[in-house]
Design a protein around this nucleic acid. Structure first.
Lengths: 255, 255
DNA sequence: CGGTATTTTGAGTATCGTCAAGGCCAGTGG
DNA sequence: CCACTGGCCTTGACGATACTCAAAATACCG
């Protein structure tokens, strides 16, 4: 938790957050003055459900799980948050879900009171917060669409495409290497299984079913290569979510 | 679509919208001046995905479906919106989902440009919009939690409890009559099946399975009585979503 | 190179989707 | 008033899919 909280480091981190791009310099200076960097290790809890989090956070690196422990001991994962995402229920009550780190995570934290005061004073900041929430709402609905598929292979296909589409810019999860599309699964099988509303065993079978059908290749459990993108799109059943053009930044001109 | 858009009617409708309760009178007057009432019949489309809706709407009566047609001809329903809910992606691009009426619906519509101008001028209004979106995000996540259940009976139990918890105040869907808890299912079996990620046949079996086990009684397909609330809570698997006290307004002092 | 956690595979059972048929209810027209 | 029709809900039978439990293989880390 103790890391270099120097002004220069903080400036760097703030600059890397895409949401903060268009903010006025005066506001950025105020934000820089009150931000604190924090880091968490794998499976460490940032906050638990029911807690009134004392800060709002922006993820500057790593992946966060939004989860809820179930009565039967299982864990439901209702969302994954990545670089640039905001969390913390500004202007609103307590958390409804527990926040936990998946892998190492670094965040940029602002005291809730100070941030709310700043947002009240700067409409730009409040607007930024709102767009962040709208973005999350979209993510949540896309996830519901994926969860709606009957077969696990379909949900997995949807997840892989989601990584490609929404998380292209995140921590080099997606790479095009010698014309081959490779990506890193950023969470382990158990977490992903909870996220896709299935069990690790079924998820494993789904990965290998896709591999056997030639849609993907498994280099390691976490490193896969996409061999047949159109087939994945077809399987996921929501081609329209991934309109033609969605993947153009991945295949700029692959004639 | 042509109905009495008189000032007195509009004032009544605006007054009934809970979100607008605490707004300053001046703002309410401005809102009243630009609002238009519209109504829709069952299955009528309000707007389709990809459309840039020209207005923002508040539902003053009835239920809206948020849906997406799938490639295989199926329909995915990712949300239901009720009285008081807002829709329309203010300050943000086009709709990601189609909006359709389930049963007869009445809305209060504001020109998007005028509403955005108003929201820019009145921070209270922008705050109201943000809280509305946050509320929707919570709904979406609760839905994800319900969709996560493996068995259809579990998802159905979750849905029934959701009606009790979130929609108590909506159009008398939930009633306590002579100590009996009765509720109205506001959508038909096909829509509900799409919503619970299953088929009408399985949903029907789930309803009757709950009835056979004595958890509910089916008076008509749309009118049910809850006989064993604790068992439903247990089945749904998310007791903590429905903390003790959630149902106190239904059973104020049923010693 | 060993030890541990994670992933994978196997076999048996539970649950659901699918297709087809039957039942119920409301509205229509004789 | 009753038969008819269409839509929706329900039931039945069968195949597809996934969960569970247990064990083996693999990957990861010191």
């Amino acid at each position: 938790m103790n890391r270099s909280n120097t002004d220069s480091t903080k400036r760097d981190v703030l600059r890397r957050l895409p949401s903060f791009g268009g903010l006025p310099p005066d506001l950025l200076a105020e934000l820089g003055a009150i931000c604190r960097l924090r880091s968490y290790r794998h499976d460490q809890l940032i906050a638990e459900e029911g807690e009134r989090l004392s800060f709002v956070g922006f993820i500057s690196g790593g992946i966060l799980r939004l989860q809820k422990p179930q009565a039967d001991g299982r864990l439901s994962i209702v969302g994954l948050m990545v670089e640039g995402d905001m969390f913390g229920r500004i202007f609103n009550g307590a958390l409804h879900f527990t926040l936990a780190a998946t892998g190492d995570v670094e965040i940029c934290a602002f005291s809730r009171e100070l941030f709310e005061e700043l947002a009240t004073r700067w409409p730009e900041l409040e607007r930024l917060v709102m767009l962040n929430i709208l973005n999350e709402l979209d993510s949540a609905r896309e996830w519901m669409l994926i969860l709606t598929s009957y077969r696990v292979t379909e949900r997995l296909a949807g997840f892989l495409l989601l990584i490609c589409r929404r998380w292209t810019s995140v921590a080099k999860l997606v790479r095009v290497d010698k014309g081959r599309l490779r990506l890193t699964i950023p969470v382990n099988r158990t977490d992903l299984a909870h996220f896709l509303a299935t069990r690790p065993e079924s998820l494993s079978r789904a990965f290998h079913a896709l591999a056997d059908d030639g849609l993907i290749r498994l280099h390691t459990p976490y490193e896969i290569e996409i061999l047949d993108l159109p087939a994945l799109l077809d399987l996921s059943g929501s081609e329209d979510l991934f309109t033609p053009g969605s993947f153009e930044d991945l295949f700029p001109r692959q004639a």
